[in-house]
Design a protein around this nucleic acid. Structure first.
Lengths: 247, 247
DNA sequence: ACCTGAACACCGTTCAAGT
DNA sequence: ACCTGAACACCGTTCAAGT
């Protein structure tokens, strides 16, 4: 944190104007700037602090101005989800269609989603928990483009329609469960419960649960990365069986 | 819904007094009554409508009275999670320790969690997404009692400490992913986005995604129950391998 | 002992008005 | 065209006061 931009100080007046028309004029709002700023704000301050009024302030504007670009707070949150998931377009390791077989294709897609989860640990629960608008937009793969790629890729690789759909379901619920638990173990999450009061509290609570107490060290260890790889491998094995299933 | 208790009408005055001391006196508040009422309220009206003031009104009391029993809204939500997860104590099909082998034990536990998820489809995302307080309370198994049972049960059945912990991780992330997607497909969720505007909107949106469009029928089909069974079976196979792994 | 009234510092959202 | 001031109907929370 440098001294200039810390702690919510609004320095929109100092913002570099890209078009370069009116040097000292305030750069006008637009939807994309609102959304990227909101994502950044959540990652820094948490979801609970994201308020129309505060987001406006960060953008150097009154809250009411936001309503010209986004219909309300709920739609703002939906836009944030789109923005985050959309980041996967920039990931060169995620490909549009299988090149080295469908397992490689799904591996890349899974790792792409994991990367955006780890890049936005605080905002990711939003991707996971906003109500899906349709059964073909299951979290965390909430992007029609990638769902289309997923299904097309598998069908081109010999999956039946039914098998491709079943694979989509298994793939998404695997990613959702694993990644939600992985980012939540990273600490940040909804709710300002940052009261990790250490001391005798812990040992006292666990007195009635001797096995949990004995294994608490092991339970606290983070093996997310290898568990992700192994579970993904096992999922791909399971999907391989789906592929061979007759309709 | 009978005519008397519908639609948020407060009839606390008519409440039956169990102790039977003062017949016409208002039955006093207590933490449990607050929490069970809150769970019911969420299931009926959604999380967004649950407000300290409204919850108070349902209980026939001003919002400020709640603070005598719960420190604030965040802690109210934590209490709601405890209440919901605690319902599994009443489930006779969930057992404390393996009787017919660990796979049967875990099957019962998994189905118990699924039952509470389906019983509270609107409130369940809260169980899934509240920030865990410790690494041994991974959603959705956020109850020290059941975590203790889980670990003890597996260790008694021949799992090493490490294998039991690994099984705990795999088991919870499976349940979280599957159940969160299952209840969210049931419609209700956070956010008042009940704008399922039918019409040409859908087909228009899907014009650029022909495969999704072609499979949209199949994608909308609900096979949650059989998918749960099959995925659980596969998970148990995976856990069986863990059991045989040397430390 | 238990609940409330009044108050404070916030929210999201609207709309007529400013520039 | 874009933003704002003022207002409305709410929030969570505190605290002295009522019974």
């Amino acid at each position: 944190m440098s001294a200039g931009d810390s702690d919510g100080v609004v320095d929109a007046d100092v913002a570099v104007i890209e078009g370069g028309t009116l040097p000292s004029a305030r750069v006008p709002l637009d939807r994309e700037r609102i959304l990227t700023t909101a994502v950044q704000f959540i990652d820094e301050h948490g979801l609970l602090d994201l308020t129309m009024r505060r987001l406006g302030a960060v953008l150097g504007v009154e809250a009411m101005s936001l309503y010209r670009y986004v219909p309300g707070r709920e739609e703002l949150l939906d836009g944030i989800v789109d923005t985050i998931v959309g980041e996967m377009y920039d990931d060169e390791n995620v490909i549009e269609a299988p090149q080295d077989g469908w397992p490689d294709f799904l591996q890349r897609l899974a790792h792409g989603v994991r990367r955006i989860a780890l890049a936005h640990p605080v905002a990711f629960p939003l991707v996971a928990s906003r109500p899906p608008e349709a059964p073909w937009l299951r979290p965390p793969l909430r992007n029609l483009h990638w769902v289309e790629s997923f299904l097309t890729g598998l069908i081109d690789e010999g999956f039946s329609d039914k098998a491709a759909v079943a694979a989509y379901r298994a793939f998404t619920s695997f990613l959702l469960g694993h990644l939600l638990l992985e980012v939540s173990s990273l600490g940040a999450d909804v709710g300002p419960l940052d009261v990790l009061e250490s001391g005798e509290n812990e040992s006292e609570d666990l007195a009635d649960y001797p096995v949990v107490k004995r294994l608490s060290g092991a339970l606290a260890e983070d093996h997310s990365a290898v568990e992700f790889e192994e579970s993904l491998e096992s999922l791909l094995d399971r999907i391989a069986l789906l592929r061979q299933t007759a309709d």
